[in-house]
Amino acid sequence: MIVESICAIVALYASIRILAEKNTLRKLPFLNVLNFAITGLIALILPHPMGIAAAAAYFVGSTLESNAIASTFAKQSEVADD
């Protein structure tokens, strides 16, 4: 029970920090913390053999998403500077 509460509190804290942060690139580490907490909770809520695949798919997908956002934002900032 303590484990689930820790994951939920960390998820809520990370989402509040995402909203409070102004800089776009510095929001992404907080989004990463939120994804870690949700990945852990997917395994904790439903312990089923396919849960490993679900947790890994969710984590890889969200990582790919933040990677794409960060690289597109960096490229666009470079173009805007020129």
């Binding site: 870690f36 395994a43 904790l44 984590f59 890889v60 933040s66 990677n67 960060a70």
Partner: peptide, 19 residues
């Protein structure tokens, strides 16, 4: 942030051992 490294490996290994 931008690729699953040892931290993701540790978390998913813990989930796998749990399940």
């Amino acid at each position: 942030v931008s690729s699953p490294d040892a931290s993701a490996g540790t978390l998913l290994a813990a989930c796998g051992v749990f399940i």
